[in-house]
């Protein structure tokens, strides 16, 4: 369970570049929640995920996972609760290291790194099986450098790494946005499969409204650093893009300002 209370964040306070990115976020995610997050450019979606992950400190408010207050835990320490996939395929993997080495690093998330072997023969077998499930042919290239993979392959690998040690929360920040439509669909399918199989609480930012409606059991919309729409269950499934835009205009008093989102409906 994730509980965020009154989280605020202002970048560059007191300067002409001052930017209120988060304006009092309250959010509670329960077991089985797969939440899609939409909103215009600069609405604060990425910032919200970065706050949960501890990339920057919050100005105020609290973040709890399963009742434990992680608000002031450093990024690497709270990583044990979190699986993360980023928009840029380069970010989630180490290009200069082998596929299996990347997986072995991820398998040790949340554990102390000792002087034991960085990767064992037993692990290699397990990784081979897991990579087979992705159906991208990676199981035969386990000692290849990740830098040689395509963007889609890297995102699929990052997904696997994020969930290799089951996280309490999976954070996806537009992780299909940099891919071509066909690859994006494949990676999204893999995402749904993995989330389903592991029953992960998930927050997924997307610019694709269709995906936002179709995937998951709950949808939130952000505007100017606040959550302005929160629909779930049956109501969410029946949503149309037009309704969504109307809801947005009603609650924020402005037009939905994202060309990408409109275009991708």
């Amino acid at each position: 369970m994730l509980e965020i209370k009154n989280v605020r964040k202002t970048f560059n306070p007191g300067t002409i570049n001052e930017k209120k990115a988060l304006n009092g976020i309250d959010l509670r995610l329960e077991e089985g929640d797969f939440v899609t997050v939409i909103g215009g450019n600069g609405a604060g979606k990425s910032t919200m995920l970065n706050m949960i992950a501890g990339v920057y400190p919050v100005d105020c408010g609290s973040i709890c996972i399963d009742g434990e207050d992680i608000t002031h835990l450093s990024e690497y320490k709270r990583a044990k609760y979190l699986g993360r996939v980023f928009q840029d395929p380069m970010t989630g993997t180490a290009a200069d290291m082998q596929i299996e080495e990347n997986l072995a690093l991820a398998a040790r998330r949340g554990k102390r790194r000792t002087l034991r072997k960085g990767i064992t023969a037993k692990e290699r077998k397990e990784y081979r099986e897991l990579l087979k499930l992705l159906d991208l042919g990676l199981e035969d290239r386990m000692t290849a450098k990740v830098g040689l993979l395509s963007g889609g392959q890297r995102q699929a690998l990052t997904l696997l790494m994020a969930t290799l040690k089951k996280p309490r929360l999976l954070l996806l920040d537009e992780h299909t946005a940099a891919l071509d439509p066909k690859t994006a669909k494949k990676v999204l399918d893999i995402t749904e499969e993995i989330v389903e199989k592991n029953q992960l609480i998930t927050l997924m930012i997307t610019h694709n409204m269709m995906d936002a409606i179709r995937v998951g059991n709950r949808l939130i919309m952000m505007h100017e650093g606040q959550i302005v729409v929160d629909v779930r269950g049956e109501e969410k499934k029946k949503l149309t893009i037009e309704q969504l835009l109307q809801m947005f205009e009603a609650s924020s008093g402005s037009h939905f300002a994202s060309d990408k989102a409109i275009l991708s409906k």
């Binding site: 690497y76 044990k80 993360r84 380069m90 989630g92």
Partner: peptide
Amino acid sequence: ANVQMSRAQGINT
């Protein structure tokens, strides 16, 4: 190789 990825994987960079 990648500081961001390392932190995300719980490494004390």
